[in-house]
Amino acid sequence: MKRNTWQREAVREALGDTAGFVSAQSLHQTMREQGSEVGLATVYRALADLATEGDADSLQQEGESLYRACTPGRHHHHLICRRCGRAVEIEADPVETWAREVAAANGFTEPEHVVDVFGYCAECSAARASSTG
């Protein structure tokens, strides 16, 4: 585990204040607007470390790494809005059962996986419906 510095703690706090997944550049910009002097490279390193340690979730979207604060110590998956980035943690049980069954049926053991389900949240679905109607 990396040692906690004030910069890393500032990144952790800023990430915790976001509603969904954010890029390092976006988080850095928000931090700068709030008066933080943490550099962009430090934000990238801190986010990568937080994700490795399980304090943040990460995903790749259109070639960019996005991050959000997560519930540590609990395996989970996400529903992610393709429009606004809102993320909801969902229970892993049905996916875990499915992954174990599929792996076993194909002779695999110790399966590991990452599942993110993308769609539109209720607010974005309503906005899309009203803009097309």
Rank of each mutant, 00 (worst) to 15 (best):
G35V: 00
E96T: 12
D93N: 08
G35L: 02
C81N: 09
L47E: 09
T42I: 05
G63Q: 05
Q60A: 00
A56T: 00
E101M: 09
G35P: 06
F108Q: 00
R68H: 08
Y67E: 02
Q34V: 00
T42N: 00
A19P: 05
R68M: 10
G20F: 08
A19V: 06
Q29K: 10
A24Q: 07
A103P: 04
P94F: 07
V114Q: 13
P94W: 14
V88H: 15
G20L: 07
S26C: 02
A87M: 12
H75C: 10
M31D: 01
V88A: 13
I90F: 14
H78Q: 06
A105H: 10
T109H: 10
E101D: 15
E62S: 07
V43D: 13
H28W: 13
V88P: 11
A104S: 05
D116W: 04
G73E: 01
F21R: 02
T109A: 06
T97M: 13
V38H: 06
A48G: 08
D93G: 12
Q25S: 09
L40I: 03
S58F: 04
H113P: 07
C81E: 08
A87L: 11
M31F: 12
C70W: 00
V114S: 15
D49R: 07
F108W: 01
D55F: 14
R32V: 15
H28F: 02
S36N: 00
D116E: 06
R100F: 11
F108R: 00
A24K: 04
H113C: 09
H75W: 03
G73Q: 03
P72C: 00
A99R: 11
S58H: 14
E112N: 11
C84M: 01
T97E: 14
S65L: 09
H76Y: 05
Y44N: 05
A56K: 11
R74W: 03
A41R: 06
L47I: 04
Y67V: 03
A19R: 15
A87S: 15
A48T: 09
A104H: 01
R83N: 03
G73S: 03
